[in-house]
Design a protein around this nucleic acid. Sequence first.
DNA 1: AAAACACCTTGACATAAGTCAAGCTTATTA
DNA 2: TAATAAGCTTGACTTATGTCAAGGTGTTTT
Lengths: 191, 191
Amino acid sequence: MVNVFEEYLRPQVQLTAEEWTRLQALSSAQHLRKRQFLLHAGQVWQSYAFVCRGCLRQYTIDAKGVEHMLKFSIENWWAGDRESLVTGQPSRQYIDALEDTDVLLFPKVDFDQFAREVPAFHAFIDGLLGRTYLASQRRVQTAISADAETKYREFVQTYPQLALRVPLRMIASYLGLSAETLSRIRGLNTK
Amino acid sequence: MVNVFEEYLRPQVQLTAEEWTRLQALSSAQHLRKRQFLLHAGQVWQSYAFVCRGCLRQYTIDAKGVEHMLKFSIENWWAGDRESLVTGQPSRQYIDALEDTDVLLFPKVDFDQFAREVPAFHAFIDGLLGRTYLASQRRVQTAISADAETKYREFVQTYPQLALRVPLRMIASYLGLSAETLSRIRGLNTK
DNA sequence: AAAACACCTTGACATAAGTCAAGCTTATTA
DNA sequence: TAATAAGCTTGACTTATGTCAAGGTGTTTT
């Protein structure tokens, strides 16, 4: 399981053998069965989570009981509620597994400490955060300007791996559409 | 003009007199008349821009010629197209002034260099980016889950300064609504 | 001080997308 | 392997929001 992380990280950051060992020692593996929760609203999120295998969904539930998908995380992605992580406040989000999933958890304190002491790693995390932010901005732009069909097309183009793997009604929710609307749109595209 | 920046930064980062002088020396002031452009689609954006006075809008124009507001920046806010800054690719965005505006420009190369050499400043920029990213995530969440009225209410609550200062049709665009819809919503709230 | 413009509002109508409900497959679970 | 649940699709209907058009203020501009 650490192997997956190693293969992910090695091409991106130059770490000494010692640093690598130390980083690895910070992590703890966790296995999630399908439908099992990694985070529940009300809990404080205090880690960085790296997905080695499987698929997670991150979502909120509104006053009417409707779920709103915020993010999906498959192999080589990071997951977690950054807001809770940064503020220390209880999360309003849920994270659970759409498939049996293996996760590496890095406690915030240790992880940040490590980043502070290893500039190359720090730079890598900064870059990651920057790219994630850009992706978020693009999502905003699509959300405010595109019609339903365009939203779906862009999603498939951006995340082809997810389009095949995640239930449609969750993709619909991610895009701010009803499941029925998304189903009809797909009907059109197929024909 | 540098005073505004100093008052903004001093409470947030501890810089030595020398560092402060050096940072200041990197900046160049620019004055924009109302409606004047700071960035035009096709140009590469290569700076960090700090607004000392006035108000900027940042937007795209789609294939139909419709503008979509991405961001407004008033005093003590940063502006710029991060995507173009990071990738070095020509921007697809426009930035122009809604009022006469004073801006401090920090060339990317120098700014990044300074951040690398002054850890406290680096940490400050990281924190800023992190908060901006959180704001973007919240905007996504509202965009996919809220109705028109809620979007507007949250906007007013989050940015009361902007609600008074920016033309309604631009706020409507920022929220992904038509100007007419926003106007009707406001009619309801007032009564 | 006109003239031209930018901005907001309102009405009438159009339409994209949502809701509710049923039926049909394909996975899970007992 | 029967039973249950999850997921997708389709139809009929509703609704929120968009579009088009006109009129009214208030602001720039000449």
